[in-house]
Amino acid sequence: MLAKSTAVFLVFVLNGVVFGSWAARVPALAAQVGATPAGLGLSLFGVSVGLIVAAPIAGRLCAAFGSRAVMVLGAVAGFVVLPVLGLTTSPLQLGLVLFVLGLTVGLLDVSMNIAAVTVTRLLNRPLMPVFHAGFSVGGLVGSLVAAFAAAVQWSPLRQFLILAVLGVAAVALVLTSLPAEAGERSRARSGDIVVGGPSPARRPVLWLLALIALFSAVAEGASADWTALFLVKDRGVPDSLAAAGYSVFSIAMALTRLSGERVERRWGPYRMLVFGASLAAVGLLAAVTVPVSVVAYVGFAFAGVGLAYSFPVTMSLAGAAGRRADGTGGEREIGFVTTIAYAGFLGGPPLLGQLAQWSGLGFALGAAAVIAALIVPAVVLVIRTRRRECAPPAVSAPTM
Score class of each variant (00 low, 15 high):
residue 267 W to S: 11
residue 51 L to D: 01
residue 109 D to S: 09
residue 241 L to N: 10
residue 221 G to P: 02
residue 5 S to Q: 15
residue 369 A to K: 13
residue 121 R to V: 01
residue 66 G to Y: 06
residue 266 R to Q: 10
residue 324 R to T: 13
residue 176 T to E: 10
residue 4 K to E: 14
residue 81 V to K: 06
residue 296 A to V: 05
residue 28 A to H: 00
residue 126 P to S: 05
residue 215 F to Q: 07
residue 280 A to E: 04
residue 376 V to C: 07
residue 260 G to Y: 10
residue 101 L to P: 01
residue 81 V to N: 04
residue 267 W to M: 15
residue 246 Y to N: 07
residue 200 P to R: 12
residue 261 E to A: 13
residue 341 A to P: 04
residue 369 A to Y: 12
residue 229 L to K: 14
residue 160 F to R: 10
residue 365 L to E: 08
residue 221 G to C: 01
residue 257 R to Q: 04
residue 77 A to E: 02
residue 302 F to M: 15
residue 397 A to W: 10
residue 380 V to S: 09
residue 72 V to G: 00
residue 161 L to N: 08
residue 318 A to L: 05
residue 32 Q to T: 10
residue 348 G to W: 09
residue 334 I to A: 03
residue 264 E to N: 14
residue 17 V to Y: 00
residue 34 G to S: 06
residue 25 R to G: 04
residue 94 L to A: 04
residue 116 A to Y: 03
residue 157 L to R: 12
residue 131 F to P: 01
residue 140 L to K: 06
residue 151 A to C: 01
residue 315 M to Q: 10
residue 291 P to C: 09
residue 100 V to N: 01
residue 209 L to C: 06
residue 164 A to V: 08
residue 320 A to L: 11
residue 45 F to I: 02
residue 15 N to A: 11
residue 123 L to G: 00
residue 142 G to A: 05
residue 231 L to G: 01
residue 217 A to E: 08
residue 237 V to F: 03
residue 359 S to E: 08
residue 264 E to I: 15
residue 230 F to T: 13
residue 2 L to W: 15
residue 338 T to C: 00
residue 228 A to E: 04
residue 166 L to S: 09
residue 85 L to D: 06
residue 151 A to Y: 09
residue 155 S to P: 03
residue 310 S to P: 00
residue 174 V to D: 02
residue 244 A to E: 13
residue 189 R to W: 04
residue 393 P to G: 08
residue 145 V to D: 00
residue 247 S to R: 13
residue 196 G to D: 09
residue 278 S to K: 00
residue 128 M to A: 08
residue 171 V to C: 04
residue 245 G to W: 12
residue 49 V to K: 02
residue 242 A to S: 15
residue 184 E to R: 12
residue 359 S to D: 05
residue 398 P to S: 09
residue 96 L to G: 03
residue 356 A to G: 12
residue 70 V to P: 10
residue 399 T to L: 15
residue 281 A to M: 12
residue 71 M to Q: 10
residue 228 A to C: 02
residue 262 R to V: 12
residue 167 G to E: 05
residue 6 T to W: 09
residue 162 I to H: 00
residue 188 A to L: 15
residue 371 I to N: 04
residue 302 F to R: 09
residue 139 G to L: 04
residue 219 A to C: 11
residue 296 A to Y: 08
residue 227 T to C: 07
residue 43 S to G: 09
residue 244 A to D: 07
residue 319 G to A: 08
residue 175 L to Q: 13
residue 239 D to V: 15
residue 75 A to M: 12
residue 124 N to G: 05
residue 325 A to G: 03
residue 8 V to S: 07
residue 123 L to D: 07
